[in-house]
Each structure stands twice: as C-alpha cells, then as structure tokens.
C-alpha cells in the first residue's frame, strides 16, 4: 500500500474541502477501497476518513419516502424495520450480496461507489482501460465469464457488481451529493454510466463530490417483488446475472412493473421493454 496523508473531518464541509485534492479518496467501511489500495490499483495521496460525519440516520423524506445516510451500513439497512416492511426488495437484494462481516462494514454510499470485480482491473500487470486509460482491455478475448452482455464498449466490458444498486435502480432512488459548488440530487438511472470511451469513470459524480445520502421515493412496491440472483456458488459470490422485479397489482392485473438487471452491464440495467410488456397485463397466465 502506498503512503498517504490521513485526515478525519467532523463535518461534511470539511470533508468536501479535504476531497478537493485530485488524488484524495473518501474512506468509509473500506471493504473495497482498502482492497484496491493493497493491490495498488488505487494510490491516493490523501485518505479522508468520513466515518465521523453525521450521516448515519435513516429518516422520513418530505414526500413520504425515506432518506438513508451515506454511512448507514448494509446490515443496518437490510434489517431496519422500515426497510423490511416498506422496501423488502431492497432488503433482499442487500442480503444476496457479500457476507455478514462485509455487510457489517460496507456502507450505503460505498456500495454505490464500489469498483468492478473484473479480474484484470485488480491485476496491475495486465492492460485495463478502467485502471489505466488507453492501455487496452484484457477481458475482451480473456476470461470474461462474469462480464458485460449489455451496453459494453470496445474499450471495456466490466460490470458493476452491486446487488443493492439493482434494487435501487428498480425503486428509482435518488443519490444526494455535496461538492464545492453545493448540493445536487442525481436520479439513480443517471448515476452510474456506460463505459463508452471513458471506462475510468464509473459514475457521473464530479471530482471532489461526496455522497451524503440516498432517497427512496414513497412509492415502495412493498407487496409484489423478488430479487433473483444466479451465481457460481449458493452464497457469497458475485452475480452472473440478477434481476430485481417489482409489480403493482390492481384487481389481479399488473398496473406497473419495474425490472432491473444486475451483473450484465457497467450499470444496473433497467429494462423498459420488459416493463412495458408487463404493465397493464393480466397478473396470471
């Protein structure tokens, strides 16, 4: 691991200031960043320990939804009664990912910002456009069983590995960030991006911005939902393919459908065609 400066701010304003440095990285649970630093895939000049920021609350949002602080752990979120009751799709997606130990450390914001699990990205002896722009892609023509089948580019076939984010895509969450130019809210569909010619950018956050919370809309799809994950082992493995599906039924008919796929693209993949085909159709064959 490279040597770095360590800072531990108490306020979001101080954190944002400390993150202005181009090679600074925010550290929360550390379950991905510490790993990336050990492999020297990420070599920050400054690590900003954000664990002391007041971002650990789950609170009602003004429109009837819930706002989840960026530092709420994956375990806290998955087992919170408000989530298990109103957003059970989110709870089951979180519990399909990682292990209890990792979920106890990993945070809400960190889950969104975790990097791909492409083997070549983690191996600095190989070419990887995401790790080193312009160096090439070893996964194309290499071992790519866990890679993208949708939305890939000539330069990158990596996928976003999160389970939680697949449910957040289906639920149309909003990501709240803060940077030197103030606060803004990013719809979930516009947060992660496709690789195109710049696979080094996983998302649309600007340099120095920090995720402070995510907001779940009031519309909760609490009753008819499933998260299905196909993987090489029964548990504790990244998805080959996963799907978050949620329906609103009315008199036995599907009124609204949400379908998001995981493990198939550089971002959680909403499938509007499938949603449209299911909406306003009979609920049972």
């Amino acid at each position: 691991m490279n040597r770095f400066e360590y800072v531990r701010p108490d306020t979001v304003a101080h954190a944002v200031k400390a993150l202005a440095d181009r090679d600074a990285r925010a550290l929360a649970g550390g379950t991905n960043l510490v790993d990336l630093m050990k492999y020297e895939v990420t070599r920050p000049s400054r690590v900003v320990d954000i664990n002391h920021l007041p971002l650990r609350q789950i609170e009602p949002a003004p429109d009837g939804g819930l706002t989840i602080g960026a530092l709420v752990t994956n375990s806290e979120l998955a087992w919170d009664p408000r989530i298990t009751k109103r957003y059970p799709l989110l709870a089951s997606a979180i519990l399909a990912g990682a292990s209890p130990q990792l979920r106890n450390a990993a945070t809400t914001g960190g889950n969104l910002l975790q990097r791909t699990r492409c083997y070549y990205f983690y191996d600095p002896s190989t070419a990887c456009n995401k790790r080193e722009p312009g160096s090439g892609c070893s996964a194309i023509g290499g071992v790519n069983r866990i890679h993208a089948i949708l939305g890939a580019s000539d330069g990158c076939i990596a996928v976003h590995p999160s389970d939680m984010c697949v449910a957040l895509a289906a639920l149309e969450a909003v990501v709240n960030v803060e940077g030197k130019d103030g606060k803004r809210s990013i719809p979930f569909s516009a947060f992660h991006r496709l690789p195109g010619s710049e696979p080094q950018h996983d998302n649309t956050m600007l340099q120095g911005e920090l995720i402070t919370s995510i907001t779940l809309p009031a519309s909760d799809f609490g009753s008819n939902h499933t998260y299905l994950k196909v993987r090489d082992r029964l548990s504790y493995a990244f998805a080959l393919v996963s799907v978050a599906a949620a329906l609103k039924l009315e008199g036995g008919e599907i009124r609204t459908a949400r379908v998001a796929l995981g493990g198939v693209a550089h971002k959680p993949w909403r499938d509007p065609d499938a949603e449209q085909a299911l909406s306003n159709s009979p609920g049972a064959p």
Partner: peptide
C-alpha cells in the same frame, strides 16, 4: 487471503463481526 474473501481475520468490533484485514486501524479509534 488478506482481501476480505476468506474470513480467517474475523474479529468483533463493538460486538459486530468484521473482516479485520479490510479495516484501517485508525478508522476505528
């Protein structure tokens, strides 16, 4: 493994099980 994959380094931090290989000690002051 020293990569958070095997669980051999599991300890309890404030009662919660966590992989100690992925925790920078300074963050748990």
């Amino acid at each position: 493994c020293d990569q958070g994959q095997c669980g051999a380094c599991t300890v309890l931090i404030d009662g919660q099980r966590i992989n100690s290989c992925l925790v920078l000690a300074v963050t748990r002051d």
